[in-house]
Amino acid sequence: MFCDRCGLPAADGDHMACAAARALEPPRFCPECRRRMKVQVVPTGWTATCVEHGLRTG
């Protein structure tokens, strides 16, 4: 598994700062394969798509 903000392995190092930043950011990396996702932000939410692992929303 990967950090969805910085794309580094979730088990390596500390992703507390990433988790805090994610309150005001959509994810950028697929947590399953670390590919950069296609992210669309709209006024009330966001969608993020990985070619392999599909759509996430928030």
Partner: peptide
Amino acid sequence: IVGNYLTTLGRPA
């Protein structure tokens, strides 16, 4: 500006 921005999120409207 209410709601989200272009690539980052704002607080809820």
